[in-house]
Computed example of a mutant assay.
Amino acid sequence: MEIARAPRRMTSLPSWLLAQAATASGRTVAAALASTGAHRTEFAVLTALDESGPLSQAGLSDTVGLDRSDMVRLLDRLAEQGMVVREPDPADRRRNRIALTKAGRTRLRTLDGAVADAQDEVTARLSDAERDRLVSLLRKLLGA
Rank of each mutant, 00 (worst) to 15 (best):
S12Y: 12
L13V: 12
L13G: 11
P14Q: 13
L17P: 04
Q20S: 11
T23C: 09
A24S: 09
T28Q: 10
V29A: 13
V29W: 10
A30I: 03
A30Q: 07
A31C: 02
A32V: 09
L33K: 02
A38W: 03
T41F: 14
E42V: 03
E42F: 04
V45E: 08
V45A: 12
A48T: 00
A48V: 00
D50T: 05
D50N: 14
E51P: 00
S52R: 04
G53V: 07
L55H: 00
L60V: 00
V64E: 12
L66V: 12
D67P: 01
S69H: 02
D70W: 15
R73V: 11
R73W: 09
L74S: 10
L74W: 05
R77D: 13
A79F: 02
G82F: 10
G82D: 10
V84K: 04
V84W: 07
V85W: 14
V85Q: 15
R86G: 09
P90V: 07
A91Y: 02
R97P: 00
R97Q: 14
A99H: 04
T101H: 07
T101W: 08
A103D: 15
R107D: 07
R109N: 10
T110V: 04
D120R: 15
T123Q: 10
T123D: 13
S127K: 03
D128W: 07
A129G: 07
R131Q: 11
D132W: 06
L134W: 12
L134I: 02
